[in-house]
Simulated assay, not measured.
Amino acid sequence: MEKGIESIFKPHLEPKEVYKGGKNLPKESNKKIYKLSSNENPLGQSPKATEALIQAATNVAIYPDQTDIRLRETLVADFDQQLKVDQFICGNSGSEIIDMLLRAFINEGDEVIYSNPCFLPYSVFSRWYGAKLIDVRLKGTDYALDVEGILNAITPRTKVIFLTSPNNPTGTYIPKNVLEDFLDRIPKNIVIVFDEVYRHFANAEDYTSALPYVKAGHNVIAINSFSKTYGLAGLRVGYCYTTSKIANYIRQIHKPFLLPLTSLEAAIGALNDSEFVAETVKTVLEGRGFLENEFQRLGITYWPSQGNFFIIDPPIPEFEFTDFLMNEGVMVRPVSQFGAPGKVRITIGTQEANEALVKALEKIKGLSKKE
């Protein structure tokens, strides 16, 4: 019997949930809407990035750099020479870096461990390559990493474990002593993908990035992005750093001319704008403190955050809540898709945006009190 076209499809790519980004602002609106749904930079973008972008826009008729070497050299300087240029890999967003890593390490049937609630592409992208997905959920009401649960889930087919600190959407982090204990107990043939795209906003005394563990030679790959701190979400630039051995292996599948000229130049400009980075972090930390106080005053259940956002338990069902806030001019995001049903994520904005959010919350609390 003649087989249909479906016979050539990969079975692990049968229709399933796909990642959907946050909604954009309505193109036509008669009122001011504060977008607090996508964890974007509240101050916009670095002026130096803008200047570099404008200059690059006059040369888009020519190909960009064949490699990402100039951006990697700038990253070496940004990391105070603690890493070598061959330890960085750049790409079109942190998401593409995740895809590249999975393409490099995952064969069909290999196992990937991740911990919901978390960034949905960990599981969605892994499925593209036929991975068996193992969800060891964050535990307890404080969304802590389940170290023992992950260790017990490891099998000979485990290839990649995703860790995130600070974590999207919960805002929680992995304390340094927990991370060190975990890394000491992981088999040496497993790759740890450590997503730290919100690291600039983490100020807990026991927070750590992946840098010390990469320098120590662990099989850790640290994911970073230019979308948050640097305000380049629209240009889709990301990077990772790891050991030289792992980075040079991954570089075998790094496409030439991967980064557009505009994105490349803007990213280099952003890295050279330390004043903008400092002002961004200051704005987020001040806004974080302000909103914590307001949530407490209003009786809003929230989780302490080390990112530029909060996850809350809304006083009415999440979709009613997001619709209500949208009508009040504030856009926020339900995160059931991220493994946190019933919860809503709210980005920290400018003081004006934060005050608009508080005003809307005051109004909704006047309409409904959660039993």
Rank of each mutant, 00 (worst) to 15 (best):
V178Q: 12
R251H: 07
Y143G: 01
P156I: 07
L259H: 04
V85D: 04
A270G: 05
A57V: 09
S126Y: 04
T155R: 00
T242A: 15
A222F: 01
E2K: 15
Q55G: 14
I348A: 01
G234W: 11
Y239M: 08
R333L: 13
G217V: 03
K31C: 07
T208F: 01
D181W: 11
V284N: 00
P42A: 07
S93H: 04
M1A: 15
P117H: 05
L258Q: 13
A202F: 02
P315Q: 10
I5L: 14
L179E: 01
V335F: 00
V277A: 12
G366C: 07
K343R: 13
A266N: 08
V124G: 01
N308H: 12
L102F: 12
V277S: 09
K370V: 13
Q252T: 13
K370F: 07
G130S: 03
R333S: 14
D273F: 05
L145M: 10
G366W: 09
T158N: 02
A360E: 07
A153S: 11
A266V: 04
R297T: 15
Y241R: 09
G339S: 09
N107K: 09
S115W: 01
R185N: 14
K365V: 09
V237H: 05
A356C: 06
G269H: 04
E205P: 00
K176T: 11
A52K: 15
Q337H: 14
N177W: 10
I62A: 11
E148I: 03
A267G: 10
Y19V: 03
G91M: 02
L183A: 05
G217P: 00
T347Q: 08
K10Q: 09
P166T: 12
A356S: 13
R137F: 01
K20C: 04
T50V: 14
E205Q: 11
Y143C: 01
P169W: 06
F309M: 11
A233Q: 14
F276L: 10
E14L: 10
S336H: 13
N354V: 10
L183M: 07
N39L: 10
G44M: 06
K176L: 08
